Simulated scan of single mutants.
Amino acid sequence: MTAPATRIRNATTTAASGSRQRRCIASGRRFDPAQLVRFVLSPDGAVLADVGGRLPGRGMWLEARREAVELALSKQSFARAAKRQVQVEPDLADRVEGLLAGRCLEGLGLARRAGQAVTGFERVRVALQTSEVAILLAAADAAADGRRKLTALARAMIGGCPEVALFSRSELSLALGRENVVHAALLPGGLADRLALDVDRLAGFRLWDGRMCNDFGTQSGAQ
């Protein structure tokens, strides 16, 4: 069984703790905006996911979990919040997952171009030994032995760091501009901070083989 990856949320959402909390329209609970996904209505009343928080219009917020979106659909929460008829696609949770994944992979590309990402097992190992690493990344199908070695080295050298295993090799390779990327690492900085928040939200939506991912890539119920 693959060792559980470190949760990022507890360590990073405090960075946004000064933000005013928002209410999830499905559950009624209040959360930091970093733990939510914002939705707006298009001019014709279609519900749009605004994962970057930039679209105009009055925001409607849901906890960043697939179950929260499904609950909102079953309770007609968007229509209630908007106080009007709305158009909601039945695959909205899948669409949110795709948007969040795209945002994460875009962030990895930015980190590569900024010189804040390293790829390959040996380069990651050297980075852990010689500099501070903010986030470890491993392909979802990476060998457990390689992940264990880098996790152990991170604990020994820097006291551990968050580990993300939500992306396939092809996704990592395309985002990082290298072939067959299995292991990578992000160095500390604003891009790593942004990725930490985005993958935390993505973890609430991503499915592998029909099962939810927990702790950034460890499948619930996996043995």
Rank of each mutant, 00 (worst) to 15 (best):
R84D: 13
G115L: 00
R95E: 12
D141I: 05
G53P: 01
R58T: 14
T119F: 04
A114S: 13
P90A: 13
A165G: 07
A46N: 10
M60A: 08
A154I: 10
G52M: 05
G102L: 10
V182P: 00
L92Q: 06
K149Y: 05
A143L: 12
L128N: 11
A111S: 12
V164F: 06
E132C: 11
A175H: 10
R84T: 15
A143T: 10
A82L: 03
A134P: 03
A154Q: 07
S77G: 06
A46S: 13
G120A: 08
V182C: 01
V69H: 01
N180K: 13
A138I: 01
L172Q: 08
Q87G: 01
L100K: 08
E122N: 10
A64N: 00
V133F: 11
L55T: 14
T119S: 08
A82S: 03
C161E: 06
A156T: 10
M60N: 05
L55I: 13
S168H: 12
A127L: 07
Q129A: 15
L92G: 07
R65I: 09
P90F: 12
R84E: 14
E89T: 11
R54V: 15
R103Q: 08
V51Q: 02
R66L: 06
F78Q: 07
A143P: 09
L137G: 04
L110K: 11
R58A: 14
G52A: 13
K75N: 02
A165H: 00
G52L: 06
M60C: 03
F78Y: 04
Q76R: 08
Q129L: 15
A93T: 09
G146D: 08
R80G: 11
L172W: 08
G53H: 03
E63T: 11
G159T: 13
